[in-house]
């Protein structure tokens, strides 16, 4: 009888515990939905055809768009990818395939530390190393700062992805008399491709909202700019500048840009998810 009551109490605790975890997880969703709701409500009305195709309107006029910031964001992300992706994948391959040396330990530590450095500090470094010597703000320096932020994500995800590939696959290739480097390039990397692409996409999502490192590198610009050696606008920079301005028209544009940025992030994460699932390789 006593025994039975004890079990009833245990089951009750069990239920209570799972209910509590469920409740708290729903709570954690609330901020995200509040943000999406608020940005959507304020931003969606600012987004029309002009928003994507026109330049910002002069102060006092309504309408106008953020085409230059959209182009700038794309260019900055492109520059960052060109700089960070090859280096990141190479470092990831090194860590997973040759990762027992002392150098590998140092690289791993360095990458972890780099990941922890505040983005504004990276902006300052890019300012000192690139903007000052080149005597001017430029999209190139902004892209380099973003690349430094993206690099750790790509390195560690590549390493993790390649580590999960069964060693039986490496051995199969080596046993056919295939040299190590060809094994890595033609067997290991193709098998890990979806994971690496996912890592790149998540890296892009990570940097596309960064503002701080661009403040003193890409700087911002009211014009349409394609030249990477000149100052360039970007969505987060534009949001920062317009949201802190006193003009309601600019506030509307900033809300619209926030909305576009949030949707872009959402899409990137969805694409990464779908790709990881669709291209998953059966071993």
């Amino acid at each position: 009888m006593r025994e039975e009551r004890r079990i009833v109490v245990r089951v009750a605790w069990d239920r209570l515990f799972s209910a509590a975890t469920a409740l708290l997880s729903y709570l954690s969703l609330i901020p995200l939905f509040l943000i999406l709701y608020y940005i959507g409500r304020r931003g969606i009305s600012a987004v029309d055809w002009d928003f994507f195709t026109s330049l910002p309107a002069p102060v006092g006029e309504t309408g106008g768009g953020v085409s230059n910031a959209l182009v700038g964001s794309a260019v900055l992300i492109g520059v960052a990818c060109v700089l960070a992706v090859p280096v990141g994948i190479a470092a990831g391959v090194f860590l997973s395939e040759y990762g027992k040396s002392r150098l590998a330990g140092a690289v791993r530590l360095a990458v972890d530390v780099l990941q922890g450095i505040p983005s504004i500090v990276i902006g300052i470094i890019a300012y000192l190393w690139i903007v000052r010597p080149m005597r001017g703000f430029s999209a190139l320096s902004g892209g380099a700062a973003l690349a430094m932020l993206m690099l750790p994500v790509v390195v560690r995800s590549t390493e993790e992805t390649l580590r999960l590939i069964p060693s039986a696959l490496r051995e199969a290739s080596l046993a056919l008399g295939v040299p190590r480097h060809r094994t890595v390039l033609k067997v290991i990397l193709p098998a890990g491709l979806s994971g690496i692409l996912t890592a790149v996409i998540l890296g892009v999502a990570r940097i596309s909202g960064e503002t701080a490192p661009l403040l003193f590198t890409a700087f911002g610009s009211p014009f349409m700019e394609w030249n990477v050696l000149r100052p360039m606008n970007s969505l987060p920079l534009m949001i920062f500048n317009y949201a802190t301005s006193p003009y309601p028209e600019w506030h509307a544009l900033a809300w619209g840009a926030s909305f576009v940025l949030a949707v872009f992030m959402l899409l990137m994460n969805l694409v990464a998810k779908v790709m990881a699932r669709r291209w998953k390789i059966r071993f």
Partner: peptide
Amino acid sequence: FQKPNPFPTMSIYDNVIAGYKLNG
């Protein structure tokens, strides 16, 4: 090997000639 380990990214055909292909 103990466990079958065909190359997962390759077709049956490519698996058979993998020794040539991978060696260029």
